[in-house]
């Protein structure tokens, strides 16, 4: 067998050249961005690349940016977590994503790892996806036939799978900017704050929270979780229960029950299903009780 490190690597200089390569031989291509996942997999022998590697790092001028566009906050796929952590725009518009970026690996990883790589690696424990789900993120996939945009919640059909086609390159992530004030939450439960893979992640956003005589009423809410299902997951049913309803202790209890029916945690080397279930529920309680306090 040939040494995988000697596999052919193609490094296009432009996005259109990269997309052209994928149009022709996309099914043989492994896409390399910051390398923080792939290089470990290569070292450990988990990754046996066949075909060739498409190194997209030289397209940085086209794919590394954070900017407002048509009312959305847009990030190029090669935006690093260090870029996200220091972005004033994201600190204002997406504090939960910034919080996640600051806890991904440590500085060495944040300087290399990209938002596109984290999304395409499709790990159920990926740190950026729960906040992105809570922020109504959409991903832009580009192929020779043009771009298509789809919501992140529809991106992961199964464990470590995405709906992206071999001819497509993830180029951008878009977050809906909210005009009204939001309350945002990110909590990653792990043995330490740096260099850890999560046991449970909950990210949340609520807006249009109104005070009523019986308690606060949540206009809109989004909940994204990680490490508690085969894929990153948005908790649609729990959201539905909480939206437009007055947040009473009994509603919070019902929401916790609903959350438990939506997640499907497992026992593994990092934690147990029971721990994950209980802690995930507590994280939701934590977010909701603070809404009670703040409103």
């Amino acid at each position: 067998m040939t040494d995988p490190r000697k596999i052919e690597v193609f490094s296009p200089e432009t996005l259109s050249a990269a997309v052209q390569v994928l149009a022709e031989v996309g099914s043989e291509a492994h896409i390399l961005a910051g390398g923080t996942d792939l290089m470990v997999a290569l070292e450990k022998g988990f990754w046996q690349p066949k075909g060739f590697v498409l190194n997209i790092s030289r397209i940085e001028p086209e794919l590394r940016y954070i900017r407002m566009e048509d009312g959305d906050v847009c990030m190029g796929a090669l935006t690093t977590f260090a870029d996200i952590a220091r972005s004033d725009l994201l600190n204002t518009e997406a504090p939960s994503l910034v919080a996640a970026a600051r806890e991904i690996g440590a500085q060495q990883i944040q300087n290399r790892a990209t938002i596109g790589g984290n999304i395409m690696n499709a790990s159920p424990a990926g740190d950026s996806m729960p906040p992105l789900l809570a922020l109504d993120a959409r991903v832009v996939l580009k192929s020779n036939e043009g771009p298509r945009t789809l919501p992140l919640f529809s991106f992961y059909p199964a464990y470590r799978e995405t709906v992206s086609q071999p001819s497509e390159l993830l180029t951008e992530v878009r977050i809906a900017r909210r005009d009204s004030p939001t309350q945002d939450y990110f909590r990653k439960v792990a043995p330490r704050r740096a260099q850890a893979i999560s046991k449970v992640i909950l990210a949340a956003r609520a807006w249009n929270v109104e005070e009523t005589e019986e308690g606060p009423r949540i206009g809109s809410i989004r909940l994204g979780v990680g490490s508690v299902a085969p894929t990153p997951l948005r908790l649609f049913e729990t959201e539905r229960l909480l939206e437009k309803a007055v947040l009473t202790p009994s509603l919070m209890g019902a929401a916790g029950h609903m959350l438990e029916t939506e997640i499907s945690p497992i026992d593994d080397m990092r934690s147990t299903a029971e721990y994950r279930r209980q802690v995930c529920r507590r994280l939701l309680d934590d977010f909701l009780s603070n809404l009670l306090l703040e409103s």
Partner: peptide
């Protein structure tokens, strides 16, 4: 740890081609 363009990174995760 080494510095690439002034930023600290892990040399064990850096593919040689990306220092170009």
């Amino acid at each position: 740890s080494i510095l690439v363009d002034g930023e600290v990174v892990n040399a064990c995760l850096l593919p040689a081609i990306q220092v170009f």
